[in-house]
């Protein structure tokens, strides 16, 4: 698969993402500057984490109007795969490719720590091949990660199996006690109705190399690759 990792001014997880896709998963990767006007024939576009445009106005609000985003949006609308992690997820919500919004954490803190995630969707490619009864340890690092959507959207997300991950404890039990940021229904990641656009606040690319002591993140990328090549 050919991946395009987009760099916005202020992105800071782009190189980690390139490293994991290229070195750990042996995929073809091109780096795309946000001012490009072509996605260079990529099959999948990744919007990495960071602080695009210094989080000015709202996280992801300005990046959403970068020239390349026009191409990313049309790629997504044509069924192409788009993955947003952390700030990438915020950009996808701001651009309307994913429903809802990411608000300031309810405790007003920037939270940087490992959390446990329960993979939920059994139909979305990013989580389909994961174990749905175990917890995956993946780090979060955000100040604005409180997922919010109105009741109708939440109902749609649940009804259409669009919820990728919920925050849980080590035993994969979902409760308010393990909700780090006040996200509605412990939501950590979602996809769109067509299940080709994925957004998640936790960073799987930061948990994908044994030298970092945790490779749970690798399973998430592998789930996506396995369902595509299968």
């Amino acid at each position: 698969m050919k991946f395009g990792v987009v760099t916005f001014p202020g992105s800071n997880c782009n190189q980690d993402m390139v490293y994991v896709l290229k070195e750990k998963l042996n995929q073809e990767v091109v780096e795309l500057w946000h001012k490009n006007t072509s996605i260079e024939g990529c099959d999948a576009i990744v919007l990495p984490g960071g602080f695009s445009y210094g989080d000015y106005l709202r996280s992801g609000a300005i990046a959403r109007f970068s020239p390349l985003m026009k191409e990313v949006i049309s790629h997504a609308q044509n069924g192409g795969i788009v993955i947003g992690v952390c700030n990438g997820f915020q950009i996808l919500c701001e651009s309307g490719l994913l429903p809802g919004a990411l608000l300031h954490n309810n405790n007003q803190k920037f939270i940087c720590k490992n959390v446990w995630l329960k993979a939920e969707s059994k139909t979305a490619r990013l989580t389909k091949n994961l174990h749905h009864d175990k917890a995956y340890k993946i780090p979060i690092a955000h100040g604005e990660g409180r997922y919010f959507a109105n009741e109708n959207i939440l109902k749609d997300l649940n009804d259409n199996d669009q919820i990728l991950f919920r925050y849980c404890n080590e035993a994969a039990e979902v409760s308010q006690d393990c909700n780090p940021n006040g996200s509605q229904e412990n939501i950590a990641g979602i996809c769109n109705k067509n299940k080709n656009v994925f957004g998640m606040m936790p960073h799987p690319e930061r948990a994908a190399d044994i030298s970092l002591g945790n490779t749970d993140g690798l399973s998430i990328f592998e789930s996506l690759l396995n369902t595509i090549t299968a």
Binding site: L57, R58, A61, I62, F65, E94, G100, A101, L103, F148, A149, N150
Partner: peptide, 8 residues
């Protein structure tokens, strides 16, 4: 379009 996100 930009200054306000009406979801929040």
């Amino acid at each position: 379009k930009l200054l306000c996100n009406k979801i929040m």
